[in-house]
């Protein structure tokens, strides 16, 4: 029996520029906090993989890292 582990979502807040694009593309995974920096939401784990990848690829500073089953997802 197989099961799928959730994708691990990491966001480097020191690199985040606060564009909010991740939150626009994947509102169940990210939002801008009150200081204007993006944070990862608990519901990121249940967000569709393709949506997470689009959010990560569109990040202006590429500060989002996605890990699937222990290995980093190659965005490009």
């Amino acid at each position: 029996m197989s099961h799928t582990l959730p994708i691990e979502v990491q966001l480097d807040q020191t690199e985040c520029c606060g564009s909010g694009l991740c939150a626009s593309i994947a509102p169940t995974a990210f939002r801008l906090d009150t200081s204007g920096v993006a944070v990862v939401l608990d519901t990121a784990a249940t967000t569709d993989r393709d949506v997470l990848v689009r959010a990560a690829k569109n990040c202006p500073t590429l500060c989002i890292t996605l890990t699937d089953n222990g290995s980093e997802i190659d965005l490009f």
Partner: peptide, 8 residues
């Protein structure tokens, strides 16, 4: 956010 206007 203005940058997405010419892209996304």
């Amino acid at each position: 956010d203005r940058p997405p206007l010419s892209k996304q």
